[in-house]
Amino acid sequence: MKTRLLPRRLASRFHPSLGAELDRLDADIRGIFENPFRSMAQLFAEVPQPIGWMPPVEIAEDGDKLTISAELPGIDPANVHVELDGNLLTIRGEKEEEHTEDEKAKKFHVVERAYGTFLRSFTVPSNVDTAKVSATFEKGVLKVEMPTMKEARQRGREIAVTAK
């Protein structure tokens, strides 16, 4: 039975390669039903792997502070950087691949662990005392504590215009 792939015009507006990926996924699913006896190794070899990763976070408020916790398992603390620029808090880092030279010769069928660089940015509320923000890293969890003030920081002020 010959199958016809439909164009994915709407998907390609959002991301140029998304339409092609959806067409490929459609063809792969049809292939499973047309030839159900192909080997599992062949099936696993066709599963696309993630390009990057994004660590999960929790943001909590406890009375007089905000805390952002990010799960960063297997990452060296030296590879984690926290930066506060104005009202933008950025957490970035890199998880290096752990495979040895002997393991690189292996043919992996499933790889769910992610490696590479990551970047997360958050807008900090105006009542955070930016001078007292601190970060700790323990047991693979980064905690950024941001004490809050009673009143919001002054973001700007109106300048009176006088006529001469």
Rank of each mutant, 00 (worst) to 15 (best):
R30F: 12
M54H: 11
A163M: 10
L84F: 04
R30A: 15
L6Q: 05
D26E: 15
R155I: 14
L25Y: 06
A20F: 06
S39Y: 08
T3C: 00
E46R: 06
T130L: 08
D23C: 11
V57I: 05
D28E: 14
K95V: 04
F118A: 03
V57L: 05
K95G: 05
V128E: 00
L88T: 15
T117H: 13
K150W: 04
S39F: 09
R38S: 14
D85H: 14
F108L: 05
P36E: 01
E21M: 05
K150F: 02
D129T: 05
G52Y: 07
S39L: 11
E151H: 11
P73S: 09
I91Y: 02
I32C: 13
G156N: 12
D62W: 05
R24Y: 10
V57Y: 10
T117V: 09
P55C: 06
E98D: 15
F122G: 01
P73I: 09
E21R: 06
G74E: 06
T136W: 00
N87W: 05
A27D: 08
G86A: 14
G116L: 07
L84D: 01
M149V: 08
H15W: 07
R155K: 14
N87P: 00
D64E: 12
L89W: 09
A135G: 00
K95Y: 00
E97K: 09
V144W: 02
A160T: 14
S126C: 11
D62V: 11
S69L: 09
T162S: 05
S12C: 03
L72W: 06
E97Q: 12
S12T: 14
S121W: 06
I75M: 13
K65C: 05
W53L: 07
E94T: 13
R13F: 04
L142H: 04
K164V: 13
N35I: 14
V133S: 02
T90P: 02
L72G: 00
I159Y: 09
G86I: 06
E71C: 04
W53F: 15
V57Q: 00
A60Y: 04
L6D: 01
S134P: 02
E58I: 01
V141Y: 02
E158C: 09
V141L: 07
D129V: 02
A20M: 04
L84K: 03
V133L: 02
V124Y: 00
F14C: 03
A45H: 10
F118R: 01
V161C: 07
G86Q: 04
L10Q: 11
M146R: 07
V111N: 05
E145W: 00
P56I: 08
M40W: 08
I75Q: 09
K107P: 03
I75C: 02
T67I: 08
L5F: 08
L72R: 03
F37K: 13
N35V: 15
L88I: 15
E71Q: 14
P56E: 10
M146I: 09
P48R: 14
P125A: 07
P48C: 14
F137M: 10
D85R: 15
I29N: 07
A114W: 01
F37G: 12
I51W: 10
A135V: 02
M1L: 12
E61G: 04
A20T: 12
P56K: 05
I32T: 12
P73R: 06
E94A: 11
P7K: 14
